[in-house]
Design a protein around this nucleic acid. Structure first.
Length: 516
RNA sequence: GGCGGGGUAGCUCAGUCGGUUAGAGCAGUGGAAUCAUAAUCCACGUGUCGGGGGUUCGAAUCCCUCCCCCGCUACCA
């Protein structure tokens, strides 16, 4: 990487001008003044709330180098103008302004609701837990810069702002092995995505593969697999088989829970332990593990259903069958509760199918549903995504990428020099009988006149070409096209409409001039 | 260049302040069952833990070195 001042003879790619140094002045934030307090803040927050190791490392690195005062203004003609008199042409540095934008946005939100003070609950109420979920590139702005700004304000004002309790930064999410890039068409727009697939399927896929420890990728195939073999096959099918069974054999009601045998008590223990386990993981920002455990509860449900064999006991021991279905339904209630943060729409559907309203997480118990409670209508929760649908998305990507990639074999200068390119003046042009593509041209070039057959009849009328100065490949081996010998080739390029345009040169070049 | 993170099974990822035969899900192979969206359940992993060197009774884990990927490093948010 070069410093701009080290470049030799630099030029702007756009204007061709050379950059020059100029003097300017800026407003600075005295970050150095806050180092001690910031270090204390980070250490204490970590002790209290257990910060992530990578986040701590970032901070330690900055502290070790020593915090330097930072310019918080820039000379740009766009951005947030510095709101003081002698600051014309100055805008706020993005990270000095963006973090404040979080507060402004909250204020705006409440203002639009007609509540001018509501924003304070989020930024100033001591019971608020301020947690910054961000990507790895933003760590220092949320652990050092913004907290120092808030400290500065808090020092001089009565209304004090909260500092983040934790900044559980994630790494980056990539797309099909490469970085997202709007300009290169690599990725998919969320809105577009949601037109095609359910939000919950996306939410589940993202949550179960969150880049908590390192960069991860979104793959269409993985999305399909997660939707089909986890959401549909494991969770969806467990819910579906239970509901169908209850409607078919128990009149759509929650059946009695009778005498418990070992697998019953084991499953009941799961209903109690999973929410606790999942809650703990979420509180420690281990979302992936939490999501995995959510699905494990559905797995346990399937296993319980399988091992209990209600399709056998319905005939031989209806009381036991009744117990099995009761416990399966309680499990489904629990699944709806624990899955709610990840797949809220499906969760709501399940509550509807159970004909109950969602409760509080801490109230989840093994007997939330009373026997005799009437169940709602059951429906399929997740539709599987077919291969063809997925392939269509993948193919779409390939096309964009192909068009953008320039990957052709290199040739040596020697190879290039073998090609004899010459200017040529078109003296005459005429259509060739029985051909709708070819034109017969007479051109003047090096070595006198010659005949060239060009495949441009669909793009030019003969008379349009006469007198044009073009470029030809002069040493191409002669070939016969539709019975006419062609002694060379005219260069042409296709425009965005698919029309061919012959490459032209100015009249100043004598016909036969070498093109280099 | 400096700082930080990462490189572990076909794929996506856990595990890393040294310690029993390195794990999970998916995919794959075989079997069981048939209530269910042909869904479910059970069984099956000889992986150069990026390469090389070192410390140690013992290294994916600590140290050195090299390679590759990502982020930050005063004007993209």
């Amino acid at each position: 990487m070069y410093d701009p001042s080290e470049l030799i003879n630099p030029k702007s790619k756009i204007t061709g001008q050379s950059p020059f140094l100029k003097e300017t002045s800026h407003w600075y934030f005295p970050l150095g003044k806050y180092q001690e307090r910031l270090e204390k803040y980070v250490i204490e927050s970590d002790e209290k709330y257990k910060w992530k190791e990578n986040v701590l490392q970032y901070c330690r690195g900055w502290f070790k180098d020593g915090l330097k005062d930072r310019a918080v203004t820039r000379d740009l003609d766009w951005g947030i103008k510095v709101p003081i008199d002698n600051a014309t042409g100055k805008v706020l540095y993005v990270w000095f302004e963006a973090v404040l934008g979080y507060i402004s946005a909250t204020k705006e939100l409440f203002k639009s609701k007609g509540d001018l003070e509501g924003w304070r609950d989020y930024w100033q109420d001591l019971s608020t837990r301020y947690i910054a979920f961000i990507g790895k590139d933003n760590v220092v702005f949320h652990t050092i810069i913004f907290p120092s700004m808030l400290m500065a304000w808090n020092d001089g004002n009565a209304d004090k702002y909260l500092l983040p309790e934790n900044v559980p930064a994630n790494e980056f999410l990539n797309f099909e092995g490469k970085k997202f890039s709007k300009s290169r068409g690599w990725g998919i727009d969320v809105g577009e995505f949601l037109d095609l697939f359910p939000a919950d399927s996306l939410r589940y896929t993202l949550a179960s593969n969150l880049p908590e420890n390192k960069d991860t990728d979104f793959y269409w195939k993985e999305f399909q697999a997660k939707n089909n073999s986890e959401l549909a096959d494991i969770l969806g099918n467990f819910v579906n088989r239970t509901f169908i069974f209850a409607h078919k054999h128990f009149e759509g009601e929650v059946p009695e829970r009778n005498e418990l045998i070992q697998i019953d008590t084991e499953m009941i223990a799961n209903i109690k332990s999973y929410p606790e386990k999942i809650a703990k993981l979420i509180e420690n920002y281990k979302i992936r593990d939490a999501v995995f455990e959510m699905m494990n509860l559905a797995r346990a449900g399937n296993k319980y259903f399988n091992d209990s064999e209600p399709w056998v006991s319905i005939k031989s021991n209806k009381e036991q069958c009744s117990t099995t279905i009761n416990i399966c339904l309680q499990t489904i209630y629990t699944l709806a509760e624990v899955f709610a943060p990840v797949i809220p729409f499906s969760s709501e559907k399940i509550f509807g199918m159970l004909n109950v309203s969602p409760g509080m997480w801490n109230d989840i118990s093994e007997s939330t549903l009373n026997s005799g409670h009437k169940l709602g209508k059951s429906e399929i929760l997740f539709i599987k995504i077919e291969d063809e649908v997925m392939d269509a998305q993948i193919n779409k990507l390939g096309k964009v990428e192909e068009a953008e990639t320039y990957d052709v074999p290199l040739i040596s200068y020697e190879d290039f020099s073998k090609i004899d390119l010459r200017t040529a003046k078109i003296l005459s042009a005429e259509n060739i009988k029985k051909s709708d593509k070819l034109l017969k041209l007479r051109v003047k070039t090096a070595g006198g006149q010659r005949q060239i057959i060009a495949g441009i009849a669909k793009h030019y009328k003969p008379e349009e070409l006469i007198g044009k100065n073009v470029i030809i490949v002069a040493n191409l081996k002669p070939a016969k096209l539709m019975g006419n010998e062609s002694q060379g080739m005219v260069l042409a390029v296709e425009d965005s409409d698919g029309k061919l345009n012959v490459v032209q040169v100015s009249d100043a070049s004598k016909p036969g001039t070498n093109v280099r």
